[in-house]
Structures are given as structure tokens and as C-alpha cells.
């Protein structure tokens, strides 16, 4: 759906985006994460045709975005990080205005706007002035506005900033709903916990570079490793450590009062065998699980080591 190749953008001597390569498949809900000034908004603005890159290509559905702006504008719905509303304009007129900007007929606009307003739970507000709506309602209206021309790609820049918890939940549900309809969505946000609940893939930017990208599980595996095991027990700590160390390819990384962490290169059967041996040796094993990271720890890990990590799958092709 969205293919970015070797994208560069500089402001004077400041390199905002450097050698960004990214591929987002159709139907993905892609979360764009990064600290302030990382280059997320610059990238989004270039994708939406609001800024010209210094070098690189952007393709949407195989169409060159820079050479075919007219065609591309029909395929993108853009929701910026602010509410672009007019005083003295009603919700229905707001939708009508943007529909007519895509050269749609008024009957077609009325029909689609009705459906979209229902989708965003604003169907009872059609005759209400936009500036009287709450922040959350305005943001949902912005999403409905961005969908008026039925774009294939929806791009949202910090859509949840400044929203109250209820509005955030509603926005999350709306985006998941759109995802289930097959829309490809790119969303940039600082609220990592929400992104991890919504997105199936992420891209982490830092200092203009894409430092990690891909399906969330894959990125987690790349960063934390898939061979981290946590074993919890009530009794027999020393015996448990000794047994673990007897297995080839196992390294005990930390030992606590009632848990120990291992890095290993064992198969599932070998892990089961090791746990069974511990139990046979009177270690009271209360549980064991693969060590999971979350998006926050992933983000911190990746951004603190910016430059060391590289995207390792078909999402990212960072060439630093």
C-alpha cells in the first residue's frame, strides 16, 4: 500500500529525515512512534503531499506520490494534529464543503456524509455548529471528513493529543472499526500503550532515522530476543540455578528471591525437560513464561540505542 524508499528531508543543516525506507502492507494499522523532533510529522507531511522530500520516492498503491499528486490526493485522507474547523459552519455543511473539494456531487456527499457521521457517532449532530462540539467529537468529525472521498490510506498525526480518556477510547474503537473494514491506517502517537492495543505493526523513528519497524511481535523479538525465559519458584533456588546451568546453551542472567531469568537456545521440549528435572529435584516451580516486553520498554530500548538497531524485515530497510 505505502512504499517509501530512501527518503531524505533537511531543514538547512538539520537532517529531519534520513534514508527512510518503509513498506506498509494493505489493511495494516501502522503506529508511527518517536520522540519529539524525530521526523514523524515531516514524514507524514511528505506522504500527504504537503512537503517535498529532498530525495527518495513515495508510492501509494504503486503510484508515485510526487509525480501524480492529483491521483494521490484521492487516495489519502489526512487528519492533522489539530482541529481545522470554521466558525459558523454546521457539521453537515463542514462535510459538504470537504466533499465538494473532492469534486463530489451534493447527493453523493449527503449519502456518504450520513454514513460516516453514523460511523463516528455524530449522526445526531448534523445541524450543530462545529465549533460547539467537544474536542473528542471534533476529532471524530475530522476522521469522518478525511474519509469523505473513501481514501485507501488514512493518515493520522497525533489524533489523541489533548483528548480525555473517554474520547481516546472512542477514537481507538473507531480506528479498529476502520481497520476491520480493510482501511490502511498510519497513526503517529506518543501514547504507546494505546498504539500497542490498536496497531499490528509499528515504526520507531529517532533523529530522522527509522530505527525499528515491523509487526509488533517481530520487533519485540528483534529487540528483546525470543529466547528469554522467566522461571518462578517457592523453594529450591540453588538447585534450580544449578540444574539450569547444567543445560548446554543456557545462561542464567539474573536470580531473584523467587524467580530467575535465563537466556537460552533450547527447543520447547528441552525447556519442558529442564522444568521437569527441576520438579524432580524438589524445586517448587510455580510457573515459567517467555519474557515479554511492552511498547514502552521497547521504545526506550530502541531510542536509547539509536544507531545500533536496524529494522530487520520487509517493513524497514534502513541503510545507515
Amino acid at each position: 500500500m505505502l512504499q517509501i524508499n530512501h527518503l531524505y528531508k533537511s531543514y538547512g543543516k538539520f537532517q529531519a529525515v534520513s534514508d527512510l525506507s518503509l513498506h506498509i502492507p494493505k489493511g495494516d494499522l501502522f503506529g508511527f512512534v518517536g520522540p519529539n523532533g524525530a521526523g514523524k510529522t515531516t514524514t507524514i507531511r511528505m506522504v500527504c503531499g504537503l512537503m517535498l522530500p529532498n530525495a527518495g520516492t513515495i508510492k501509494i498503491n504503486g503510484v508515485d506520490a510526487l509525480a501524480n499528486q492529483k491521483e494521490i490526493k484521492k487516495q489519502i485522507g489526512y487528519v492533522p494534529d489539530f482541529f481545522g474547523v470554521y466558525d459558523n459552519l454546521k457539521v453537515r455543511e463542514y462535510m459538504d464543503f470537504y466533499g465538494s473539494m473532492y469534486r463530489m456531487h451534493s447527493r453523493e456527499i449527503a449519502q456518504i456524509a450520513g454514513d460516516l457521521l453514523e460511523l463516528v457517532n455524530l449522526s445526531d449532530k448534523t445541524e450543530v455548529y462545529v465549533d460547539t462540539l467537544s474536542r473528542g467529537m471534533k476529532q471524530r468529525l475530522c476522521v469522518a471528513r478525511a474519509l469523505i472521498h473513501n481514501p485507501a490510506l488514512l493518515v493520522l498525526d497525533e489524533p489523541n493529543s489533548g483528548l480525555d480518556p473517554r474520547a481516546r477510547v472512542e477514537m481507538k474503537e473507531l480506528l479498529l472499526n476502520l481497520k476491520s473494514m480493510g482501511k490502511t491506517i498510519v497513526i503517529s502517537s506518543h501514547i504507546l500503550s494505546e498504539l500497542s492495543e490498536m496497531c499490528n505493526s509499528i515504526g520507531i523513528m529517532d533523529h530522522g532515522h527509522l530505527v525499528a519497524a515491523g509487526r509488533i511481535e517481530d520487533v519485540m523479538d528483534d529487540v528483546f530476543g525470543s529466547n528469554q525465559l522467566v522461571v518462578t519458584f517457592d523453594e529450591g533456588r540453588e538447585r534450580a540455578v544449578r540444574i539450569a546451568n547444567e543445560y548446554a546453551g543456557v545462561k542464567v542472567t539474573s536470580v531473584g528471591e523467587k524467580e530467575m531469568k535465563l537466556s537460552h537456545s533450547m527447543t520447547k521440549q528441552e525447556i519442558a525437560g529442564m522444568i521437569a528435572t527441576m520438579i524432580e529435584n524438589e524445586v517448587v516451580v510455580t510457573g515459567f513464561h517467555r519474557q515479554e516486553g511492552n511498547l514502552e520498554t521497547l521504545f526506550m530500548r530502541v531510542t536509547e540505542n539509536a544507531g545500533a538497531q536496524e529494522g530487520g524485515n520487509d517493513y524497514a530497510e534502513s541503510n545507515r
Binding site: K73, P80, F83
Partner: peptide, 13 residues
């Protein structure tokens, strides 16, 4: 200033 300009430019206008 109203921050509607960018949205306008992403349309077919």
C-alpha cells in the same frame, strides 16, 4: 492561523 490550510491542500483543490 485557523490550521485549515494544510487540510485544504490535501484535497483535490
Amino acid at each position: 492561523e485557523r490550521q485549515t490550510f494544510d487540510i485544504m491542500l490535501t484535497t483535490s483543490m
